[in-house]
Simulated assay, not measured.
Amino acid sequence: MKIGCPKEIKNHEYRVGITPESAEEMIAHGHQVVIEAGAGAGIGAEDDAYRAAGAAIVDTAQEVFATADMIVKVKEPQAGERAMLREGQILYTYLHLAPDPAQTKDLVASGATCIAYETVTDRHGGLPLLKPMSQVAGRMSVHAGASALEKAHGGRGVLLGGVPGVAPGKVTVLGGGVVGFNAAQMAVGLGADVTILDRNPEVLERLAIHFEARAMTRFSNQANLAECVAEADMVIGAVLLPGAAAPKLVSRDMLSTMKPGAVMVDVAIDQGGCFETSKATTHADPTYLVDGIVHYCVANMPGAVARTSTYALNNVTLPHALRIADKGWQEALRADPHLANGLNVWNGKVTYKAVAEALGLDYTDVASALAA
């Protein structure tokens, strides 16, 4: 199979779908790899490193899309990239379709087979291809929020860890999954006063055992949510419904109860965001104010630490990419029902139920695609 990797073109996105080491593994399996010139520059992987691994370097993304049987990326394809997809071509990347009707429409129209990293599962019910980026984003959320809290950046002027004689900042984390756990770890490490809300008693128990007295856990109901948001200097939105749009937990009305200059970091923005007032931002212009509350809603947070993120991502995406290339996508998905959960669009049809429901589209089950 010919596997192609274009340069990412989303604002301030420096990650790359295939590292030179991954390219070498693919070539060792008998596949051809074609890389757009400069695709790895953001992680310090020059074209010569790919050539040394045996990959071919081409000048444009158009050449990659025109010749590759499978496209491997990091972020969802932008409009110009979607226009280059063709029927039967495999797209293997993050998609986050539920809040993105334009992308979904284009992928359906392309006829491509689209496998989304974020809905591939494992035998424990986890999301292994999303997990490393959730870990990165969770940890980064506290860095970003701490910077936004500085007065010069529009915040309250609060140091999260405080100093002797001055209370630390209060951090409320909404969701105790991978993002929330990593955000809480960072906030606790800085000495902040941390509260984590979740609706799953088992998650709350696990968090309470791990953090002991260093962080408080509370059940996420409307009363507790409202109280914690009102008291917080920083709120981190870390909720996830796999493949579906994120629930809007913090309403516009709740902002009026918050401290002026408090910061809201919406890590769920890829899935539409969990604050009613969220809108996607970029690393070039990461924050905005609503009713005096600072919002940080960058949709590709891990792109800022591109080298760490790329290698963490390739560690988990490469094995599945090799199975798809070695066996063909249908046989690979038949052999692995967890990988089959990644199929979101096939042959002009939506094959992930939560996406179809979120966008009001017809749903075709994966079994139909695999039987075709």
Rank of each mutant, 00 (worst) to 15 (best):
M1T: 14
C5S: 14
I9A: 09
H12V: 05
H12D: 14
E13W: 04
V16F: 06
V16R: 04
G17E: 06
E21Y: 02
E21Q: 14
S22N: 10
H29V: 00
H31A: 01
V33H: 03
G42T: 09
A45C: 09
D47Q: 11
A49P: 02
A52I: 08
G54M: 01
T60K: 07
A61C: 12
Q62I: 10
E63Q: 15
F65E: 03
A68V: 10
D69P: 08
V72H: 06
V74S: 00
A83D: 13
Y92F: 15
T93P: 02
Y94F: 15
L95W: 09
L97F: 06
A98T: 09
S110V: 08
G111F: 04
I115P: 12
T119R: 08
V120I: 15
L127M: 07
P128M: 09
L129N: 05
K131D: 12
K131Y: 09
M133F: 01
V136F: 00
G138H: 09
R139G: 15
R139T: 12
A152W: 06
H153Q: 09
G154C: 09
R156G: 13
L160K: 05
G162M: 04
V163P: 02
V163M: 15
V163G: 02
G169P: 10
V171I: 14
T172I: 02
V173H: 02
V173C: 06
L174W: 05
G176F: 01
V178Q: 01
V179K: 01
A184Y: 05
A187Y: 09
G189E: 07
V194R: 05
R199K: 14
N200Y: 06
P201L: 09
P201V: 15
P201E: 10
E202M: 14
E205N: 13
A208T: 15
I209C: 01
I209Q: 05
F211I: 11
A215H: 03
A215E: 03
A215C: 02
F219N: 07
F219L: 14
N221C: 13
A223L: 12
E227N: 12
V229P: 07
E231G: 11
D233G: 04
V235N: 04
L240H: 03
G243I: 10
A244N: 11
A244K: 14
A244V: 08
A245C: 15
L249E: 07
V250S: 08
V250P: 06
R252A: 15
D253K: 08
M254S: 08
T257C: 05
P260K: 00
G261K: 10
A262P: 14
A262W: 10
M264Y: 13
V265M: 02
A268W: 08
D270I: 07
D270G: 01
Q271R: 09
S278V: 12
K279T: 13
A280L: 14
Y288K: 08
L289V: 02
D291G: 10
H295G: 03
Y296R: 06
V298C: 14
A299L: 03
N300A: 09
M301T: 12
N314I: 01
N315F: 00
V316E: 07
T317C: 04
T317E: 03
K327C: 14
L339S: 05
G342K: 06
L343Q: 10
W346E: 10
V350I: 13
Y352S: 00
L359A: 11
Y363R: 11
T364D: 04
A367V: 05
